[in-house]
């Protein structure tokens, strides 16, 4: 039987074009991506060589390469540092509290937003909830100081007038209230903005699933529970992994602007401590040693979270 009669065509072989032809065709994309790559190399990878000052007694004049080697001196110092343990506890505490509270809040708020049927109202709510994200922590600190002021703050006035408290509370001066105060403030600041990524995923869910569920008698809550939430599980896992990876860097802005002598034992986070040791006290070697350890811990945490997520949900970053 002839090939023609059988109407069978020979598979088309894709002719591989020469490299320069392909490059020319993709030149625009190459230019775009190489800027990004160059940026990463210049600003992220090359500076990594500076890590060696963690093993040196860095001084300005001798520079990174000229300063004398001291081996693990700064790492030993790190384990003897009185405030190190304190900074670790604060960082982990604020992070766990933040993750533990902000995720449920964000997801619930996203689901509620998604259920709003009045489009105009939904847009208004979204815009209003996004706004605090654009307020810098410097401004936010002034707002918080003003709102939480024991003498003139609106929060204390309201609480007193409602009879919840007898005398004003110095929220930012109480160690036991510092974590929750900054976490609540952070949630307020980022709640709306954080919903964007979840809403984007929700908008990609096939409408037919909701219609089928509706025909099967599923109510709004059931649709949310059995369609929306499972669809969000992937992004929730990814966001959680990323958050866990960022634990070590938590709390700099809040500590920088809201730390004071009264709350220092609860506001001194690792990133703030690195700043204090490095930029304020100019002990760059020691601060680099802390940062180096932080990076290792961050990477370990992220990989651990990724592995756990892969095992539990089958979803992860890699």
């Amino acid at each position: 039987m002839r090939k023609k009669e059988l109407n069978i065509r020979a598979p088309r072989t894709v002719e591989k074009k020469p490299f320069w032809v392909r490059f020319k065709k993709e030149a625009v994309f190459h230019i775009m991506i190489w800027f990004g790559v160059a940026f990463l190399i210049v600003f992220a990878y090359i500076p990594m060589s500076g890590i060696i000052i963690a093993f040196k007694d860095y001084n300005f004049r001798s520079g990174i390469f000229g300063s004398p080697w001291v081996g693990l001196k700064h790492f030993r110092q790190l384990f003897q540092d009185f405030f190190m343990g304190n900074a670790v506890i604060n960082t982990v505490g604020i992070s766990v509290l933040s993750i533990g509270l902000s995720y449920p809040c964000t997801i619930i708020f996203t689901l509620l937003l998604n259920e709003l049927r009045n489009v105009k109202f939904k847009r208004v709510i979204q815009t209003v909830s996004y706004l605090p994200h654009f307020i810098s922590w410097a401004i936010m600190a002034v707002i918080l100081n003003s709102m939480l002021s024991p003498s003139e703050g609106i929060i204390n006035i309201v609480l007193q007038n409602l009879g919840f408290i007898d005398k004003p509370i110095a929220f930012l001066g109480r160690e036991d209230l510092y974590w929750i105060t900054v976490v609540v403030a952070s949630i307020w600041k980022s709640l709306g903005w954080n919903t964007i990524v979840y809403l984007a995923v929700i908008s990609g869910i096939d409408e037919s699933l909701y219609e089928a569920a509706k025909i099967d008698g599923a109510g709004r809550f059931a649709r949310m529970r059995y369609i929306t939430l499972p669809a969000l599980s992937g992004i929730i896992a990814i966001m959680l992994i990323l958050s866990v990876g960022g634990i070590a860097g938590t709390g700099f802005d809040t500590s920088f602007y809201l730390s004071n002598d009264l709350n220092y034992n609860r506001s001194n986070t690792l990133s703030y401590y690195v700043y204090t040791i490095g930029l304020r006290r100019a002990n760059f070697s020691y601060s680099t040693a802390i940062s180096f350890l932080l990076s290792v811990v961050s990477a370990t945490l992220m990989l651990t979270a990724n592995t756990i997520s892969n095992k539990l949900t089958g979803k992860g970053l890699f």
């Binding site: 007694d57 001084n59 110092q77 540092d81 009185f82 405030f83 004071n260 002598d261 009264l262 220092y264 034992n265 006290r281 100019a282 002990n283 020691y286």
Partner: peptide, 21 residues
């Protein structure tokens, strides 16, 4: 500040500044 005494003093100051308040 970068000497052993300087580092030690900075650590002690961190403690008493906060505790005294």
């Amino acid at each position: 500040a970068s000497s052993d005494a300087g580092v030690a003093l900075a650590g002690l100051q961190d403690i008493f500044n906060s505790e005294l308040a």
